[in-house]
Design a protein around this nucleic acid. Structure first.
Lengths: 161, 161
DNA sequence: CTACTTGCAAATCATTTGCAGATGA
DNA sequence: TCATCTGCAAATGATTTGCAAGTAG
């Protein structure tokens, strides 16, 4: 039984690559050099990024023909499917963020500098649950964006005047 | 002063096409046959729609060469810019909804039938304001989606079993 | 071995653009 | 009049796919 606990704790703290390996193996997929390199790159920075920025970070490997663009896209989808990454759309940009070993949160999106500020609110979740209950709606998840101008940009703006 | 009030009230109750005409004229743009036809079609249904569905509704006019696809896209952007339409992304679908003479709301999105259910919550707005205040963030707007399974689909699902 | 993967080149596909002719103010 | 629009055809550009060769298990 203490075994159960340690297993559980191992699972939660499993590094992303190991977690992804689990996912692949569970589906009879293979752990290839490319998939390893891509996932390592994704988790070497903690930031929001789009496919093209990731390509940028992988440019050496892409130039050396170790990885191709289609493989990056294919892997990105798998990593999302594995639940390690969350995909969202900001305007016309498709952005990814870490979604593993990372607390649930929503975003403030600055329309001036494009920065994303994360926040978490239990109250928000309570309201979400209440609304869903009213509509007999079964929640899978939610997504909330507050758009506006961040403190930094406001200060910059004030200085200009 | 009572003048102010009546002006304000006229403005709010202006039909969409008239409001769009205002917008165009204020920018030295022209009120063309195509723009009129497209805006009329958009406001003849109250529903969420994507560019392709709108093309469908306009297919007669498109077939008769009265309107072209590029013009539909161009006009759609202008109508969004005019604040009459709101654009959002659902998965890979770009969806528009009326945003004029229509109350602010958020959405429950059914992942089974793809239906959008609208709701409004003052509590949600209060929380949004509180979060923004904490971060000294100036709000322009927000967007919230709750995804899951709607009541109808749940019932269908239960019957199947 | 052999089924799963990859890189390549080509296809997609919704949306956008350049341009010459048409048209609203 | 003449600047703004439009339709057309073509361009875009991110993402996806078909396929033959490569490789993990």
């Amino acid at each position: 039984m203490s075994e159960d606990y340690s297993l559980r704790s191992v699972q939660v703290t499993l590094p992303p690559l190991a977690r992804f390996t689990q996912f692949l193996q569970a589906r009879g997929k293979r752990v290839t050099e490319q998939r390893r390199l891509i996932v390592e790159m994704i988790y070497s920075h903690h930031a929001h990024f789009d496919a093209d920025e990731l390509m940028g970070h992988l440019q050496d490997l892409i130039a050396r023909r170790k990885i191709s663009r289609p493989t990056v896209y294919r892997t990105l989808s798998e990593v999302v499917e594995a639940g390690l990454l969350r995909k969202m759309t900001l305007g016309r940009r498709r952005v990814y963020e870490h979604d593993y070993g990372y607390p649930r949160h929503d975003h403030l999106h600055c329309e001036m500098c494009n920065k994303l500020i994360e926040f978490h609110s239990e109250d928000l979740e309570r309201i979400r649950d209440a609304v869903a209950r009213e509509h007999e709606f079964q929640i899978i998840g939610h997504r909330m964006f507050i758009s506006g101008i961040c403190a930094d940009c406001r200060k910059l703006d004030e200085r200009k005047r």
